[in-house]
């Protein structure tokens, strides 16, 4: 297989005395969709936030496209990068949040073009055109001039996806993108994500949507208590979990005996 696009090695992270990540190793290869499952508090969201350095890691390393995130090797020593350089790394990594985090004072179009024009200094006309294509792709072409609060949660999340894509990221991180949505709005967001996966976008997804993992994921990773306890093809992990903790977690989502259906 090719070199991994994202490689986490022995990642440790603590909040005060609470150790949230206890040495996590994870590779995401180009074009791959990796879904991280696990009970709340297992450290899966923290792992995601360490990938784009929203949280600084305490040990181990994270690299994206062969470059360390947040650090740099000079000779034999590892140096911490200044904020400005970290921002540069983040431009290649898109992120979608549980609570969308759209900028409420900007229109939908304004949200999408803000970073490409302001950060990448791309011409506004070009970015606007790209933004309209993206909006069309997520099915919201007619909402370009609306403000985020005038949209439903599912629409806001699709705008957030378009906003992240406008930076043309190499890797997309999804942090429980459907957890804050009303049940009837979950489908539209998952459908958008399914399209992106079909386009070959590299995605690292934290979610509780088992069916999404089953259909879309190339690989499912199960985390518990700050460690990856099981990893493999969705069919294997979801239907024949070898780890008792995976089994206990999945039993809460799947009716008894559902494991044999696939």
């Amino acid at each position: 297989m090719t070199a991994p696009l994202m490689a986490a090695r022995a990642v440790h992270k603590s909040f005060g005395s609470l150790e949230v990540l206890k040495g996590v190793d994870l590779d995401v290869h180009p074009g791959e969709v990796v879904v991280v499952l696990g009970p709340s508090g297992s450290g899966k969201s923290t792992l995601l936030r360490c990938v784009n350095h929203l949280e600084a890691i305490d040990g181990g390393s994270v690299s994206v496209d062969g470059e360390l995130v947040g650090y740099e090797r000079r000779g034999n020593r590892i140096h911490r990068l200044p904020e400005r350089r970290i921002a540069k790394t983040r431009q290649q990594i898109g992120m979608v949040f549980q609570h969308f985090n759209l900028f409420p004072h900007l229109t939908v179009l304004g949200n999408i073009i803000e970073a490409p024009t302001g950060v990448l200094r791309e011409p506004k006309a070009e970015v606007t055109e790209r933004a309209r294509v993206l909006l069309d792709k997520v099915g919201l072409a007619e909402k370009a001039d609306a403000y985020p609060r005038q949209l439903s949660g599912g629409q806001q999340q699709r705008v957030a996806i378009a906003r992240a894509l406008a930076m043309r990221p190499k890797l997309m991180l999804f942090d429980e993108p459907t957890s804050a949505l009303d049940p009837e709005l979950v489908g539209e967001v998952l459908a958008t994500m399914r399209d992106l996966a079909a386009d070959g976008l590299t995605m690292l997804v934290v979610t509780h949507e088992i069916s999404f993992a089953r259909e879309v994921a190339d690989r499912v990773v199960f985390m518990d208590d700050g460690m990856i306890v099981e990893s493999g093809k969705p069919a294997g992990v979801l239907d024949r979990p070898s780890n008792p903790r995976t089994r206990a977690f999945l039993s809460r989502f799947l009716p008894a005996g559902a494991g044999s259906s696939a």
């Binding site: 990594i93 759209l102 803000e114």
Partner: peptide, 27 residues
């Protein structure tokens, strides 16, 4: 202003100054 706004701006690769003047201060 919701800290999520700063996080979203950072995740997009904005500098601190830009985040302040384009995202946080207007809100």
């Amino acid at each position: 202003v919701d800290p999520g706004q700063t996080e979203a701006a950072q995740a997009l690769g904005m500098s601190r100054t830009r985040t302040l003047f384009r995202v946080v201060l207007p809100q």
